[in-house]
């Protein structure tokens, strides 16, 4: 009987996988840390493409996908359309993507790249100080999911399945008592 139940569970599980189109979008975000283990995301202050100052602390109250990337990073390019989609889907629900470009050449290369790829989320150009705050960033992409309290809930180094991001974002937005229709914090700019 137990064997039958297990088999039925297995079949149900397989059906669920196939029903999702065998895509990675149903991957469980097992990497989301429990609240008690989350540490504060180091704050930083960088400029966006318009010269406005952006502080990570300004995003407190939102779920943030913080993506360290570079124009020369192929795997980073794969994730950009996903992040555009997340921004579009969840920007009015207390969520934001913030991209930190780690190109040494700065805006000269980042601006045209961002325009070419139609990046719809905010981008800043990083520096050594910020890299050090985040452990040196030995590899890209390195992406953090930051909860409403400004704490790191998940870290992804390298190209990760889209579903892991999706599920993590969903869980973090739901953890705040549902998906609110307005951002919890306005972004301050100088």
């Amino acid at each position: 009987m137990v064997r039958v139940r297990l088999s039925a569970a297995l079949v149900a599980c397989l059906l669920a996988v196939f029903a999702s189109g065998c895509s990675s979008s149903r991957v469980k975000a097992a990497s989301l840390k429990p609240d008690s283990e989350r540490k504060a995301a180091p704050d930083f202050e960088l400029k966006d493409a318009n010269g406005h100052t952006v502080r990570l602390a300004d995003y407190r109250g939102k779920v943030v996908l913080l993506d360290f990337w570079a124009t020369w990073c192929g795997p980073c390019k794969v994730e950009i359309p996903w992040f555009k989609e997340f921004e579009r889907q969840h920007k009015d629900k207390g969520f934001a993507v913030l991209g930190v470009a780690m190109d040494e050449e700065g805006w000269d290369v980042v601006k045209p790249f961002a325009q070419h790829f139609g990046i719809n989320y905010r981008i800043v150009v990083g520096n050594d100080t910020v890299a050090d705050l985040y452990g040196g960033l030995g590899a890209l992409p390195t992406t953090y999911l930051i909860d409403h309290d400004g704490k790191i809930a998940a870290t992804h180094v390298g190209l990760s399945p889209k579903g892991e991001f999706e599920d993590g974002i969903r869980q973090l937005l739901e953890a705040r008592g549902g998906i609110s229709s307005s951002p919890a914090v306005l972004v301050r700019t100088k």
Binding site: A70, W72, C73, G74, P75, C76, M102, E104, L137, G138, A139, L140, P141, V157, G158, L159
Partner: peptide, 12 residues
């Protein structure tokens, strides 16, 4: 040089 593996890239 600038190196990568199949899932990530390393700084120049």
């Amino acid at each position: 040089y600038q190196a990568c593996n199949s899932t990530m890239c390393f700084p120049p």
